[in-house]
Protein backbone atom coordinates (compact mmCIF):
# COMPACT_ATOMS: atom_id res chain seq x y z
CA UNK A 1 0.00 0.00 0.00
CA UNK A 2 2.66 2.51 1.08
CA UNK A 3 4.87 1.25 -1.69
CA UNK A 4 2.12 1.96 -4.21
CA UNK A 5 1.82 5.53 -2.95
CA UNK A 6 5.59 5.93 -3.24
CA UNK A 7 5.57 4.68 -6.80
CA UNK A 8 2.75 7.05 -7.60
CA UNK A 9 4.68 9.93 -6.07
CA UNK A 10 7.72 9.11 -8.15
CA UNK A 11 5.61 8.87 -11.26
CA UNK A 12 4.08 12.24 -10.47
CA UNK A 13 7.52 13.75 -9.93
CA UNK A 14 8.64 12.43 -13.28
CA UNK A 15 5.54 13.87 -14.89
CA UNK A 16 6.30 17.24 -13.27
CA UNK A 17 9.81 17.28 -14.63
CA UNK A 18 8.56 16.69 -18.14
CA UNK A 19 5.40 18.71 -18.07
CA UNK A 20 5.78 22.47 -18.13
CA UNK A 21 2.06 23.13 -18.15
CA UNK A 22 -0.75 20.71 -17.60
CA UNK A 23 -4.51 21.16 -17.81
CA UNK A 24 -6.88 18.37 -16.71
CA UNK A 25 -10.55 18.59 -17.69
CA UNK A 26 -10.63 22.37 -17.42
CA UNK A 27 -13.96 24.10 -18.02
CA UNK A 28 -14.68 27.82 -17.95
CA UNK A 29 -18.05 29.55 -18.25
CA UNK A 30 -18.75 33.26 -18.49
CA UNK A 31 -22.23 33.33 -16.98
CA UNK A 32 -24.17 30.63 -18.85
CA UNK A 33 -21.81 30.84 -21.79
CA UNK A 34 -19.35 27.95 -22.01
CA UNK A 35 -15.94 29.17 -23.16
CA UNK A 36 -13.78 26.13 -22.49
CA UNK A 37 -15.20 22.65 -22.17
CA UNK A 38 -13.28 19.82 -20.60
CA UNK A 39 -9.91 20.90 -21.97
CA UNK A 40 -6.91 18.69 -21.20
CA UNK A 41 -3.47 19.60 -22.42
CA UNK A 42 0.13 18.79 -21.59
CA UNK A 43 2.96 21.02 -22.71
CA UNK A 44 6.51 19.76 -22.45
CA UNK A 45 9.91 21.40 -22.52
CA UNK A 46 11.01 22.42 -26.06
CA UNK A 47 7.48 22.10 -27.42
CA UNK A 48 6.52 24.77 -29.91
CA UNK A 49 2.75 24.46 -29.77
CA UNK A 50 0.45 26.43 -32.03
CA UNK A 51 -3.15 26.65 -30.89
CA UNK A 52 -5.45 27.69 -33.68
CA UNK A 53 -9.16 28.26 -33.66
CA UNK A 54 -11.86 30.70 -34.68
CA UNK A 55 -12.24 34.08 -33.01
CA UNK A 56 -14.21 33.70 -29.81
CA UNK A 57 -13.14 30.06 -29.58
CA UNK A 58 -11.55 30.58 -26.16
CA UNK A 59 -7.89 30.96 -27.15
CA UNK A 60 -7.18 34.00 -25.01
CA UNK A 61 -9.21 32.51 -22.15
CA UNK A 62 -7.07 29.38 -22.32
CA UNK A 63 -3.92 31.51 -21.94
CA UNK A 64 -5.49 33.41 -19.04
CA UNK A 65 -6.37 30.14 -17.31
CA UNK A 66 -2.73 29.06 -17.59
CA UNK A 67 -1.67 32.46 -16.23
CA UNK A 68 -4.07 32.20 -13.29
CA UNK A 69 -5.89 35.33 -14.45
CA UNK A 70 -9.10 33.37 -15.05
CA UNK A 71 -10.10 30.74 -12.50
CA UNK A 72 -11.60 27.63 -14.10
CA UNK A 73 -15.01 26.45 -12.91
CA UNK A 74 -13.76 22.90 -12.82
CA UNK A 75 -10.61 20.95 -13.61
CA UNK A 76 -7.01 21.30 -12.56
CA UNK A 77 -4.28 23.55 -13.91
CA UNK A 78 -0.68 23.15 -13.00
CA UNK A 79 2.28 25.27 -14.06
CA UNK A 80 5.74 23.83 -13.46
CA UNK A 81 4.07 21.30 -11.19
CA UNK A 82 2.37 23.88 -8.99
CA UNK A 83 -0.35 26.46 -8.60
CA UNK A 84 -0.48 28.94 -11.51
CA UNK A 85 -0.71 31.84 -9.03
CA UNK A 86 2.60 30.74 -7.49
CA UNK A 87 4.45 29.67 -10.60
CA UNK A 88 3.19 32.01 -13.31
CA UNK A 89 6.23 34.16 -12.64
CA UNK A 90 8.20 31.59 -14.64
CA UNK A 91 5.96 32.17 -17.66
CA UNK A 92 7.00 34.73 -20.24
CA UNK A 93 3.70 36.26 -21.27
CA UNK A 94 3.47 38.21 -24.53
CA UNK A 95 0.00 39.74 -24.75
CA UNK A 96 -1.54 41.08 -27.95
CA UNK A 97 0.61 44.08 -28.79
CA UNK A 98 -2.30 46.00 -30.25
CA UNK A 99 -3.87 46.29 -26.81
CA UNK A 100 -1.15 48.66 -25.56
CA UNK A 101 -1.40 52.38 -25.19
CA UNK A 102 1.08 53.57 -27.83
CA UNK A 103 1.10 57.05 -26.28
CA UNK A 104 2.54 55.86 -22.99
CA UNK A 105 5.72 57.82 -22.21
CA UNK A 106 8.10 54.89 -21.87
CA UNK A 107 11.23 53.91 -23.78
CA UNK A 108 11.94 50.50 -25.27
CA UNK A 109 14.64 49.99 -22.63
CA UNK A 110 12.26 50.71 -19.77
CA UNK A 111 9.56 48.41 -21.19
CA UNK A 112 12.03 45.54 -21.24
CA UNK A 113 13.31 46.40 -17.76
CA UNK A 114 9.79 45.94 -16.36
CA UNK A 115 10.37 42.26 -17.16
CA UNK A 116 12.90 42.40 -14.29
CA UNK A 117 10.56 44.26 -11.94
CA UNK A 118 9.83 41.23 -9.77
CA UNK A 119 13.51 40.37 -9.37
CA UNK A 120 14.15 43.96 -8.34
CA UNK A 121 10.94 44.38 -6.33
CA UNK A 122 11.19 47.27 -3.83
CA UNK A 123 14.82 47.92 -4.69
CA UNK A 124 16.72 49.50 -7.58
CA UNK A 125 17.58 47.57 -10.74
CA UNK A 126 21.02 46.00 -10.38
CA UNK A 127 23.63 45.80 -13.11
CA UNK A 128 22.60 42.18 -13.54
CA UNK A 129 19.00 43.24 -14.21
CA UNK A 130 20.17 45.79 -16.74
CA UNK A 131 22.45 43.29 -18.43
CA UNK A 132 19.69 40.69 -18.65
CA UNK A 133 17.32 43.23 -20.19
CA UNK A 134 20.02 44.31 -22.59
CA UNK A 135 20.78 40.83 -23.81
CA UNK A 136 17.05 40.15 -24.23
CA UNK A 137 16.87 43.24 -26.45
CA UNK A 138 19.90 42.05 -28.35
CA UNK A 139 18.36 38.61 -28.86
CA UNK A 140 15.33 40.10 -30.60
CA UNK A 141 17.47 42.58 -32.53
CA UNK A 142 16.00 45.69 -30.93
CA UNK A 143 19.04 46.98 -29.05
CA UNK A 144 19.72 49.79 -31.57
CA UNK A 145 16.27 51.26 -30.88
CA UNK A 146 16.36 51.02 -27.07
CA UNK A 147 15.92 54.78 -26.60
CA UNK A 148 12.77 55.00 -28.73
CA UNK A 149 9.38 55.68 -27.22
CA UNK A 150 7.38 52.45 -27.58
CA UNK A 151 4.69 53.95 -29.82
CA UNK A 152 7.26 55.09 -32.36
CA UNK A 153 7.95 51.55 -33.54
CA UNK A 154 6.22 49.42 -36.16
CA UNK A 155 3.88 46.64 -35.03
CA UNK A 156 6.53 43.99 -35.68
CA UNK A 157 9.15 45.92 -33.72
CA UNK A 158 6.77 46.42 -30.80
CA UNK A 159 6.06 42.70 -30.79
CA UNK A 160 9.80 42.02 -30.54
CA UNK A 161 10.11 44.41 -27.63
CA UNK A 162 7.32 42.62 -25.77
CA UNK A 163 9.04 39.30 -26.40
CA UNK A 164 12.25 40.82 -25.03
CA UNK A 165 10.35 41.98 -21.95
CA UNK A 166 9.08 38.41 -21.41
CA UNK A 167 12.60 37.02 -21.96
CA UNK A 168 14.11 39.48 -19.48
CA UNK A 169 12.22 37.63 -16.75
CA UNK A 170 14.14 34.45 -17.77
CA UNK A 171 11.02 32.32 -18.27
CA UNK A 172 10.76 28.56 -18.77
CA UNK A 173 7.88 28.88 -21.19
CA UNK A 174 6.76 31.62 -23.55
CA UNK A 175 3.04 32.28 -24.04
CA UNK A 176 2.12 34.41 -27.05
CA UNK A 177 -1.33 35.76 -27.85
CA UNK A 178 -1.84 36.38 -31.60
CA UNK A 179 1.77 37.47 -32.08
CA UNK A 180 1.51 37.80 -35.84
CA UNK A 181 -1.56 40.02 -35.88
CA UNK A 182 -0.89 43.26 -37.70
CA UNK A 183 2.58 42.23 -38.84
CA UNK A 184 3.62 42.10 -42.52
CA UNK A 185 4.04 38.63 -43.96
CA UNK A 186 7.75 39.03 -44.74
CA UNK A 187 8.45 40.24 -41.20
CA UNK A 188 6.42 37.32 -39.87
CA UNK A 189 8.86 34.78 -41.33
CA UNK A 190 11.74 36.45 -39.48
CA UNK A 191 9.64 36.54 -36.35
CA UNK A 192 8.81 32.82 -36.42
CA UNK A 193 12.47 32.01 -36.97
CA UNK A 194 13.24 33.93 -33.80
CA UNK A 195 10.70 31.78 -31.96
CA UNK A 196 12.27 28.67 -33.50
CA UNK A 197 15.62 29.68 -31.98
CA UNK A 198 14.05 30.38 -28.59
CA UNK A 199 12.52 26.91 -28.57
CA UNK A 200 15.99 25.49 -27.83
CA UNK A 201 15.79 26.99 -24.35
CA UNK A 202 12.11 26.82 -23.43
CA UNK A 203 8.64 25.72 -24.40
CA UNK A 204 6.59 28.04 -26.57
CA UNK A 205 2.82 28.23 -26.80
CA UNK A 206 1.28 30.51 -29.35
CA UNK A 207 -2.38 31.09 -30.11
CA UNK A 208 -3.47 32.40 -33.48
CA UNK A 209 -6.42 32.38 -35.81
CA UNK A 210 -4.07 32.18 -38.80
CA UNK A 211 -3.85 28.47 -39.61
CA UNK A 212 -1.36 28.46 -42.44
CA UNK A 213 1.24 30.79 -40.93
CA UNK A 214 1.24 28.81 -37.71
CA UNK A 215 1.35 25.40 -39.32
CA UNK A 216 4.67 26.03 -41.08
CA UNK A 217 6.72 26.86 -38.01
CA UNK A 218 5.28 25.08 -34.99
CA UNK A 219 6.25 21.58 -33.96
CA UNK A 220 2.84 20.66 -32.53
CA UNK A 221 -0.58 21.96 -33.30
CA UNK A 222 -3.92 22.02 -31.51
CA UNK A 223 -7.27 23.35 -32.50
CA UNK A 224 -9.56 25.09 -30.02
CA UNK A 225 -13.21 26.00 -30.17
CA UNK A 226 -14.56 25.44 -26.66
CA UNK A 227 -13.22 21.90 -26.97
CA UNK A 228 -9.56 21.23 -27.65
CA UNK A 229 -8.54 18.93 -30.47
CA UNK A 230 -5.00 17.77 -29.90
CA UNK A 231 -2.99 14.65 -30.54
CA UNK A 232 0.38 15.75 -29.13
CA UNK A 233 1.70 16.01 -32.66
CA UNK A 234 1.69 18.21 -35.69
CA UNK A 235 -1.22 16.41 -37.22
CA UNK A 236 -4.76 17.54 -37.10
CA UNK A 237 -7.53 15.48 -38.56
CA UNK A 238 -9.76 17.11 -41.11
CA UNK A 239 -12.68 16.07 -38.88
CA UNK A 240 -11.14 17.96 -35.96
CA UNK A 241 -10.81 21.14 -37.95
CA UNK A 242 -14.30 20.82 -39.26
CA UNK A 243 -15.66 20.17 -35.81
CA UNK A 244 -13.77 23.15 -34.39
CA UNK A 245 -14.61 25.61 -37.12
CA UNK A 246 -17.97 24.02 -37.80
CA UNK A 247 -17.43 24.25 -41.53
CA UNK A 248 -15.08 22.54 -43.98
CA UNK A 249 -11.60 24.07 -43.75
CA UNK A 250 -9.11 24.12 -46.59
CA UNK A 251 -5.61 23.66 -45.34
CA UNK A 252 -2.72 24.07 -47.69
CA UNK A 253 -0.38 21.14 -47.29
CA UNK A 254 3.25 22.19 -47.14
CA UNK A 255 4.82 18.86 -48.00
CA UNK A 256 5.70 16.17 -45.51
CA UNK A 257 7.68 18.19 -42.93
CA UNK A 258 5.11 20.93 -42.68
CA UNK A 259 1.87 19.16 -43.20
CA UNK A 260 -1.10 19.81 -41.03
CA UNK A 261 -3.33 17.11 -42.41
CA UNK A 262 -2.49 13.46 -42.52
CA UNK A 263 -2.03 11.91 -45.92
CA UNK A 264 -5.29 10.37 -46.92
Amino acid sequence: MTQNIKIREIQEMQAIVKEVISLRNVSVHYGDLPVLENVSLSIYMHDFLGIIGPNGGGKTTLLKVILGLVKPDSGKVSVFGGDPLQNRRYIGYVPQHRLFDPNFPISVRDVVLTGRARHALFRRYTNHDKKTARSALEMVGMLPLEDRQIGRLSGGQQQRVFIARALAAEPGVLLLDEPAAGIDTCVQAEFYELLGRLKQKMAIVMVSHDITAVSVYVSKIACLNQKLFYHDSKELLAEDLEAAYQCPVDVIAHGIPHRVLREH
Binding site: L67, G68, L69, R88, R89, I91, Y93, P95, F100, D101, F104, I106, D110, V111, L113, T114, G115, A117, R118, A120, L121, F122, R124, Y125, R165, A169
Partner: peptide
Protein backbone atom coordinates in the same frame (compact mmCIF):
# COMPACT_ATOMS: atom_id res chain seq x y z
CA UNK B 1 9.79 51.33 -10.89
CA UNK B 2 6.79 49.41 -9.52
CA UNK B 3 4.37 52.22 -10.40
CA UNK B 4 5.81 52.36 -13.92
CA UNK B 5 5.26 48.62 -14.34
CA UNK B 6 1.65 48.67 -13.12
CA UNK B 7 0.66 51.83 -14.99
CA UNK B 8 2.12 50.60 -18.28
CA UNK B 9 0.81 47.04 -18.20
CA UNK B 10 -1.05 45.89 -15.11
CA UNK B 11 -1.74 42.39 -16.42
CA UNK B 12 1.89 41.67 -17.23
CA UNK B 13 2.95 43.09 -13.87
CA UNK B 14 0.49 40.75 -12.12
CA UNK B 15 1.74 37.74 -14.04
CA UNK B 16 5.41 38.29 -13.25
CA UNK B 17 4.57 38.50 -9.55
Amino acid sequence: KEFLAITFDEEFATVIG
